[in-house]
Each structure stands twice: as C-alpha cells, then as structure tokens.
C-alpha cells in the first residue's frame, strides 16, 4: 500500500550573519547550510495496517507525512502510495488519502459543519448514496448530531476534532494520515476518536498512519510502530516488543523538604537510578527524580522506601513517554 525507500529531504537554511550588516549582506549573497530533515528512510506498510509514526518534535515526522501526502517533493528516494507517486501526481493521490493535521482545521471556518461536508462531497466527487451512508455512520459513532448545524468557528476543540476526523474519512480514503488527533482532548473524547478509527479500519480496511505523543493512542490502535529520530528510522517493528524492553521504565518525581542529605534508600540501591537534571533546571531545587523498571519494582515500593527515610512535600508519578523511550533507544540501541 505504502512503499517508501531511501526517502531523503534536505532543506537549505540561509545563514545570516548577526547584525544589520548581516541582514543587508543576505540581500545580495546568501550562504546556505544544508539540514537533513529526513535521511534515507525506508518502510513499507500493508493495506489495513495501523502504524504509529513516532519521534520527538523536529524528528522529521511531519516532513515524512508531507512527502507521503504530496505536499513536499523529496530530495531523493521513492514514495508510492496506492501505486501513485504523490508529489508527481498530487491530485490523483489526494483522491485516495485523508488527513487530520493537528490543530489546523480542514473544514471551512464560517459555514456549518454539514455544509462543509457537503462541499467536501463535491470536491471528492463522492456519490450521493455513499455520502449519506457515511454521514449516518459517522454521526452515530462520533456523536455528531448536535454539531452539524454549527459553524466550525463556534465549536470547542473536542467537537472540532470529532468533525475533522469525520471529514478526513468522508470520501473513504484508502490511506489516512492522522497527526496528533487527540492532542489537548479529554479522556471521553479521546476514547470516542479511538473507537471511530478502529471501526473505520475494520470496516473499510483503511490504512492509518498515526503520529502522536499519547501512548494511549498508540497502545489502543497500533500493533506496529516506526520510531524516527533526527530524520533516521531508529526502530520499525512490533509495539509489544519495544514496550517490554523499554516501556517498563517509570519515573517518580519527589519534592523534598531538604535535598541536601538525600541518598537512595538501602532497599532500593542498584534498582533505581537518579535521573539527571535537564538543562536549565535549577540544580538547587529540592526535587529528585528516580527511575526504575516496573518489572522488578512497583511505584508503591519506591514511594514507600523514600517516604520512610525522607520527608517528602509532594510527589508525582510520570507516565512512560514516547520521548523517554526514544531517548532510551537512542542511548542504548535497540
């Protein structure tokens, strides 16, 4: 369904000397630095697969998606979606894809959602009957009924996202790119959206590529993940495997009364690590973060051990984040 091989995208970044002189010089002579946003990326995705495409901000996720959807032309390498080269045959490709790009709306701002869908129907030349059928289904699964007569600009974020999602699937595309479809939404809406994606995947065998920072999205929807960092593929394979290896990592942050005398309690020695402070975080602050593997310790054990020795003002348990997993993989290798 999607074949990507040796995909590379380079950007030229204009270098500008500081100061007014630099600004004026840049008008006449520009020096460039080449930034590789995506380097030699290859993967292949089967019809009906749902793949999580993960990586930190600026890792090259959206650049890849833009090349897959025909918005960007690659510097080198090959892309085929549905047998079409997207950047050579943009309009043809566009018929077979749907997309949700995070916070940016695909709908028409001023007109009611239903009218937006009607326009999309004409743009994608969806037959009347199919359209009616899809709309009825989406209305039910995403609970759109009360929203259809409201202009997009009056919708809340969660309502808008539900409408966006329906818009992306309206022409029954073979491939859908979802970029952060659940960002900033509450749990109930997230759940609705996930259910909808699963349902569409089951019914239509829609291929889904999902980028997200939300582990929950990935766990519920994707069996396979591709992790990208600094433009290169770090990992491509089973989600379960990677979770077993790295996802066990948990972190508890403690805020202490006094950090000066802190030492890892004896019972935890060798089983937890003190997480080094991130850059820019004040060394003097009274917080300590301990990381451990949930295979040999529970969070409760760690908290209890620390509480028994130190006086703790506050504590938080952090979820394993995609970023931490990516960092782990980067540091230790797969």
């Amino acid at each position: 369904m999607i074949e990507v091989s040796g995909l590379t995208k380079e950007y030229k970044i204009a270098l500008r000397k500081p100061g007014l002189t630099g600004a004026i010089q840049a008008l006449f002579k520009r020096e460039h630095q080449i930034k590789q946003a995506v380097q030699d990326v290859s993967f292949s995705i089967r019809k009906g697969e749902m793949v999580g495409y993960l990586g930190a901000n600026g890792a090259g996720k959206s650049t890849t998606i833009k090349m897959l959807s025909g918005i960007l032309t690659p510097t080198s390498g090959k892309v085929e979606v549905n047998g079409i080269v997207p950047y050579q045959n943009r309009e043809q490709n566009a018929k077979g894809i749907g997309a949700v790009f995070g916070q940016r709306t695909q709908l028409f701002w001023d007109i009611p959602v239903r009218e937006s869908y009607d326009l999309l129907r004409h743009i994608y030349e969806v037959p009347e009957d199919d359209y009616r059928e899809s709309l009825a289904l989406f209305t039910e699964v995403l609970d759109l009924g009360p929203l259809l007569s409201i202009p997009v600009r009056q919708l809340s974020l969660g309502q808008k996202m539900r409408c966006e999602l329906a818009a992306a699937f309206l022409h029954r595309p073979a491939v859908v790119y979802l970029d952060e479809p659940t960002i900033g939404l509450d749990v109930a809406v997230k759940q609705k959206i996930r259910t909808f994606i699963k349902e569409m995947n089951k019914r239509e065998e829609t291929t889904v590529i999902l980028t997200t920072h939300d582990m929950g999205d990935i766990e519920e929807l994707c069996k396979r993940i591709i992790i990208i960092d600094e433009g290169k593929v770090l990992y491509d394979g089973d989600l379960q495997q990677i979770k077993e290896r790295f996802g066990q990592k948990r972190v508890v942050h403690f805020e202490l009364e006094n950090k000066a005398g802190f030492a890892v309690p004896a019972s935890l020695r060798d089983r937890v690590e003190i997480v080094p402070k991130a850059d820019g975080e004040a060394e003097a602050s009274n917080t300590v973060s301990l990381s451990f593997s949930s295979r040999d310790l529970s969070a409760a054990d760690v908290i209890q051990a620390v509480l028994s020795v130190h006086s703790v003002r506050d504590l938080t348990i952090a979820d394993p984040k995609i970023e931490t997993i990516v960092k782990e993989i980067y540091e230790r290798g797969v």
Partner: peptide, 14 residues
C-alpha cells in the same frame, strides 16, 4: 504563515 496552505494541497483539485 499558519500552515493552512497544506490543506489545499491534500485536496484533489487545483
């Protein structure tokens, strides 16, 4: 500027 031009480019029309 806000990145909305991408929206036009994923549609099957000019």
């Amino acid at each position: 500027r806000p990145g909305n031009f991408d929206r036009l480019l994923i549609r099957p029309i000019n």
